[in-house]
Structure formats: C-alpha cells, structure tokens
Simulated assay, not measured.
Amino acid sequence: MKSFFKQPHLLAAGIWIFTIALIGGLLTEIGPWYMSLKQPGWKPPDWSFGVIWTIIFIFSGVAWNIAWLSSNQRKEKIILSILFLLNGILNVLWSFLFFKLHRPDLSLIEAIFLWLSVFFIILNTASYARKASVLMLPYLIWVSIAMLLNWQIIQMNSAFIS
C-alpha cells in the first residue's frame, strides 16, 4: 500500500476511473422509459452491463498505469492523460444522453467519438506500451457492440427516426 501512494499517477488514474464508473452508474436508469424500448433479441441481459463495464474500467486503469510507466517522455504522458480524461468525459456523456435525456439518436452520434477516443488510446500506446493497447481492445470491442445495439434500438423505436 505504501508504494501505491508513492505513484501519484496511479492514484490519480484510479480515482478518475472510479469516478467515471460511479457517475456512469448513477446516470444509468433501468426504469420505465428504458424498459418500454423495443430491443433486439441478441441484447445481453441488463445485469451483464455492470459486470462488463467493471472489467473494462479495471483494464483501462491497468492500461493507463502500464502506459504511464512505460513512457519516459513527458509529452507522451500528457497525451496519454488527455486521451484517458477525454475518454472518461465521453463515457459519462453517452450515459447522460441515453439514460437521462432519453436520446438514443444523440447518444449514437456521441458513441462515434467515444469509440474514436478508445481507438486513439490504443493507437497512441501501441508504439511504447503494447500491453496497454491490448488491454484496451475489449473496450473498443464493447463500444462497437454497444453502438450496434444503440443503432438497432433507434431502428426498432420509430420515435427516434426523423
């Protein structure tokens, strides 16, 4: 535990990822509006989303730490931190648009930027922290699946088609 607090970047990354997970979880309301949506039969069960996101957030925190420790360049560390901070903001924004504003159409547009943020983290870390980029692949895959689910929800619920 002593060495954990000697690594402020690790503590900061952990706090940031926990905060994003907490805010995203609080924004996610499985209430009457969500339950009334027509959804594709292949959609994973609702309980699995929390499990999947927990794993993704753990992998993200580990990836951030590996990449930070693998880099000796200040510029790389700054870019890495900006990418993870932006990714967290986009993650929360998706939940806000979908669950609070009830706008799957807007959340799908936003999801493109979320996907790109994960892609750029992978691209950025691939040259100096390959393990970190590999740990981010499940996130990219999951956001891709979520985008397809988001798209099909829009298609199945005509109120969102203009």
Rank of each mutant, 00 (worst) to 15 (best):
S3T: 15
K6E: 13
K6H: 15
K6M: 13
A12C: 10
A12I: 14
A13W: 08
A13R: 01
I17N: 12
I17C: 05
T19G: 13
I20D: 00
I23E: 07
G24F: 11
G25A: 08
L26V: 10
P32S: 06
W33N: 08
Y34N: 06
M35W: 01
L37T: 11
P40A: 01
G41D: 15
W42M: 09
W42I: 06
K43I: 04
P44L: 10
P44C: 04
S48M: 15
S48N: 08
V51C: 06
W53P: 07
T54P: 14
T54W: 11
I56D: 05
I56C: 07
I58Q: 07
W64V: 03
A67H: 11
E76V: 00
I78L: 14
F84S: 02
N87C: 02
G88D: 06
I89L: 14
L90E: 01
W94N: 03
W94G: 01
F96Q: 02
F98N: 08
K100M: 13
K100G: 00
L101G: 09
L101S: 04
H102P: 01
H102R: 09
H102E: 09
R103G: 03
P104I: 08
P104G: 07
D105I: 03
L106H: 05
L106E: 08
S107G: 06
S107D: 04
L108P: 00
L108W: 13
L108D: 01
I109N: 05
I109R: 11
I109F: 13
I109E: 04
E110C: 04
I112L: 13
I112M: 06
F113Y: 13
L114F: 10
L114N: 00
W115V: 00
W115Y: 12
L116E: 01
L116V: 04
S117M: 08
S117Q: 09
F119D: 01
I121V: 14
I122T: 05
L123M: 10
T125S: 11
S127K: 15
Y128G: 01
Y128S: 02
R130M: 00
K131I: 04
V134I: 15
L135Y: 03
L135W: 08
L135S: 04
M136Q: 12
L137R: 01
W142N: 09
V143K: 06
S144C: 05
I145W: 13
I145G: 03
A146I: 02
L149G: 10
L149C: 09
I154D: 02
N157F: 08
N157L: 12
N157H: 13
S158C: 00
A159S: 13
A159G: 09
F160I: 04
I161L: 10
